[in-house]
Amino acid sequence: MRLRRVNTGLGACETHTYAVKAYNAEGESAPGDPVTVTTAGCTGGGGTLPKHFLTGYWHNFVNAATELKLSAVPNEYDLVAIAFGEATATPGEVVFALDPGLATAVGGYTDAQFKADVQALHQRGKKVILSVGGEAGRVQVADSAAATRFADSVYALMRSYGFDGVDIDLENGLNATYMAQALRSLRSKAGADLIITMAPQTIDMQSTGMEYFKLALSIKDILTVVHTQFYNSGSMLGCDQAFAYGQGTVNFMTALACIQLESGLRPDQVALGLPAGPGAAGGGVVQPSLVNQALDCLAKRTSCGTFVPPRAYPDIRGAMTWSINWDASNNWSFSKTVKPHLQGMP
């Protein structure tokens, strides 16, 4: 005999987990495997992004990594985040311009050439977004006026350069309330295909009380993906709250991603952010093969370390790396290893 239960009164884009037990005169059975479902109404941007995709940051500045024109980004990358949009003296306002040092380093690069390269990436089926902030970024959205300026200025840059969305990478203060207001305003201007990503530091996603986590949950209905920086953080507690897992391990990536997966974000909104190789970060550099193991652990509960997640998340979104330039410096090891694995995931 089949029994059917209908839950009513659920909101749009809510995630719920169910486990079924059988009852008779002898008592109840053990619960079956949990099943997680999401209600309709999720409208997070992404358009033609693959089910599992690879994100990489492109440097608009010169450092020890290889300097590249945007046209040199290889096909392994599905989403390219331009680093970075910067603040002005006006709170909330974001500006972008090609760095003169970069232009010199790559043998000349004009604004027009950059815009043409954005369009060329579009023709290859790629998405390009503007990342706002970075380690030295000082973009501040702390009131309604700043939220309006943020939305207006980012939208103007999207129209000028052809960007498909925005990445929030603020490492020097974030107000969840007003940034949510800014992003919803931007969404109203740009439409349903707007891509919104976030790149919080590991500490920022340790609990739902942190501002980044509050922001992610408050815009869950329009959020594309959170690719937390699982590096430069030292040891951290995972979702089991039992151990401080060391960075640079499968346990670290899976146990910390589990916090987000078990605390309200959908699996398709969670990705793993890792350095592309030596030189890209001060700590947490991993072999790309370990990223693949972590993805399999989360998607299928196979290839895990000592930490095994409470359930499988087959819709885990993918991976991000800092950065495309550092990947180039390390013979493209990250993208050539991780992208084929993402393509092979169901």
Rank of each mutant, 00 (worst) to 15 (best):
T197S: 13
V73H: 00
R187P: 02
A176C: 03
P74K: 11
G107S: 04
N175P: 04
K127P: 04
A103Q: 15
V166T: 14
A116N: 14
D167T: 01
Q181L: 12
A199H: 14
M179G: 13
A147W: 04
D169N: 13
A81W: 02
P100G: 00
V118H: 01
A72P: 09
F150L: 10
L121D: 04
A146P: 01
G209T: 15
V141F: 08
D99R: 10
L194V: 00
P91W: 02
A182I: 00
I129P: 06
S131G: 12
D117R: 11
K126L: 09
A151W: 03
Q123V: 06
Y77H: 05
I129T: 09
V95Y: 13
G209S: 15
F96L: 12
T202Y: 07
T148E: 15
A176Q: 12
D193P: 05
A147D: 08
T88A: 10
V128R: 14
R159M: 09
A147M: 05
F163E: 08
D152F: 10
A97Y: 11
V73W: 02
K189Q: 15
L194M: 11
K115D: 06
A156I: 11
D169Y: 07
V73K: 01
R187Q: 07
A182N: 04
L121K: 10
K189R: 14
S185V: 01
V154T: 14
A97G: 09
L98S: 01
I203T: 08
D99V: 07
R138M: 12
Q206L: 10
A142I: 06
Q123F: 00
T197L: 03
G173P: 06
Y77K: 08
G133Q: 07
M179W: 10
D193L: 02
A72N: 13
V95E: 14
I196D: 05
A105E: 13
Q201T: 10
G162C: 11
E135Y: 14
A199C: 06
I203Q: 12
V141M: 07
I196Y: 09
V166C: 14
A136E: 12
G137A: 13
M205E: 06
R159N: 14
V154K: 09
V118G: 05
E76I: 11
A182L: 00
L186M: 03
D117F: 11
V94I: 11
T177C: 03
A105G: 12
A120G: 10
G101A: 07
M198H: 09
G134N: 07
V94P: 12
P200F: 11
G101D: 08
D193M: 00
A116C: 10
D167A: 09
Y77L: 05
I129C: 08
A116W: 09
T88C: 07
H122D: 07
P74A: 00
R149A: 15
P91I: 00
Q140E: 15
V139C: 02
K126Y: 11
G133L: 06
T104Q: 14
A87W: 04
V141Q: 08
S71D: 12
P91M: 07
G165H: 05
